[in-house]
């Protein structure tokens, strides 16, 4: 059962709201203060990725964010974009990043994944159990 559930139309302006809510719930749940910047960044990246996919595929459905604090702080960010679009994420190395032929969207996607993988020790990206889409699941320990 999610402690807090938020859904928002896939527009960039709402990603900040999701970040703020995610950090507020994390703080309330007892996530260590020094991890909150990383929580904020990771939730932002997961939501940015979801919004980008919805816009790329013309999906008007809302992006779902679920936060729960039973034992750990777990955040699920669920998109409704075609699954094949979401698989194959990989971090880029310095040579790839500097490559002139890499466009800004692909670069941003690669950098976003590097940030998620770098800041979240317990990270899963997988197809949703029902219907179309993927979920990014991130878990942080609670300090209590």
């Amino acid at each position: 059962m999610a402690t807090v559930r938020l859904s928002f139309s896939p527009a960039p302006v709402h990603v900040r709201t999701a970040r703020l809510v995610g950090v507020a719930v994390a703080r309330r749940a007892g996530v260590r203060e020094d991890l909150l910047d990383e929580v904020r960044l990771a939730i932002g990246e997961a939501c940015t990725r979801a919004v980008a996919l919805h816009r790329q595929y013309g999906v008007a459905d809302p992006v779902l964010v679920e936060m729960s604090d039973s034992g750990t702080y777990a955040v699920r960010v669920v998109d409704r974009a075609p699954i094949e679009a979401s698989i194959g994420l990989h971090a880029l190395d310095a040579d790839e990043l500097a490559n002139e032929s890499l466009n800004e969207d692909d670069l941003t996607t690669g950098v976003g994944f590097a940030l998620l993988a770098g800041f979240v020790e317990d990270l899963q990206v997988r197809p949703v159990d029902e219907g179309i889409g993927t979920e990014v699941r991130m878990v942080w320990p609670l300090n209590r």
Binding site: R19, R40, G44, T48, D105, L107, T108, V111, G112
Partner: peptide, 8 residues
């Protein structure tokens, strides 16, 4: 705050 979009 700086995210992947800003870095891009």
């Amino acid at each position: 705050f700086l995210d992947s979009t800003g870095l891009g």
